[in-house]
């Protein structure tokens, strides 16, 4: 597995000029690393993920990826016409894997995300947390080396989120994936990540990097988590104020 991001910039063009979303981003991930990106909204964190996934092209710079990646969106984006098990089997079926192998893999991951009893259900019959678990499993069955996650828990309620933090940490420790996790929730980032990268307001640059070294599994309420979160929040505060000032100017 290799992921190197070298000097990436991204500009969007529109009739009134261009908007610089990202500016000279450098990032390198080590095998099995859990990297969280935090920053004020509109700072280009999600754009960076889209660039890594190849959904968008960078304006300059390049990205070197060696290995398969999986992508998890903010919304579960399950296919409503497929049952849970078929949603999970989707990528394998496209890859023309053999039926027995598909079934075994799907069963394994169903167990991993605790959804075995729901394998015959349709997405609309599941709760938000369950849907996101299916989405995670659907990504994992393809055995990606790198997992890109774009605020995957943002739309969930607090309790469900905490359960999923634990599950994600367990799964990550078990499967040793490299994870790039975008969030605007600082505590979530500290709870999950090995490294937390703080982005500046637009154009997004990496402002500061925090290494999180305390033992896992971590919980949101752990004292160390709260302490580091507060430090990061202080860092972020300036950036968020910048965004607010910019918006005020825009309104004038």
């Amino acid at each position: 597995m290799k992921l190197q991001i070298r000097n990436i910039s991204k500009k969007y063009y529109n009739p009134s000029g261009h908007i610089e979303a990202l500016s000279s981003i450098n990032l390198e991930a080590v095998q099995g690393e859990f990297i969280c990106l935090v920053g004020p909204s509109g700072c280009g964190k999600s754009t960076l993920l889209n660039l890594i996934a190849g959904l968008e092209k960078p304006t300059s710079g390049n990205i070197v990826i060696d290995g398969k990646f999986g992508f998890m969106f903010q919304e579960p984006t399950l296919f409503p016409w497929l049952k849970v098990k078929d949603n999970m089997a989707f990528g394998l079926k496209i890859a023309k894997k053999d039926k027995k192998e598909i079934k075994e893999t799907v069963d394994y991951f169903l167990k991993l995300v605790h959804l075995k009893p729901f394998k015959e259900a349709y997405p609309h019959e599941l709760s938000g947390g369950m849907k996101q678990r299916v989405a995670l499993a659907r990504t994992l069955v393809l055995e990606p080396d790198i997992l890109l996650m774009d605020e995957p828990f943002a739309a969930l309620d607090a309790q469900t989120r905490e359960i999923l933090y634990n599950e994600l940490q367990e799964i990550w420790q078990l499967t040793k994936k490299t994870i790039i996790f975008v969030t605007h929730n600082v505590r979530e980032a500290v709870c999950l990540g090995d490294r937390v990268l703080v982005f500046t307001a637009r154009p997004g640059k990496i402002k500061k990097e925090f290494k999180i070294t305390f033992p896992r599994p971590r919980e949101l309420g752990d004292l160390e988590v709260i302490k580091v979160s507060n430090e990061i929040k202080m860092e972020l505060k300036d950036e968020i104020e910048k965004v607010i000032r910019e918006m005020e100017q825009y309104n004038k």
Binding site: A53, L55, F73, E75, T77, F90, G91, I94, R138, L142
Partner: peptide
Amino acid sequence: QPSLINAGKILGARGVN
């Protein structure tokens, strides 16, 4: 929904698939 198309692409469905 464009997100469904994106999800499909990410999971390997391209072209005819």
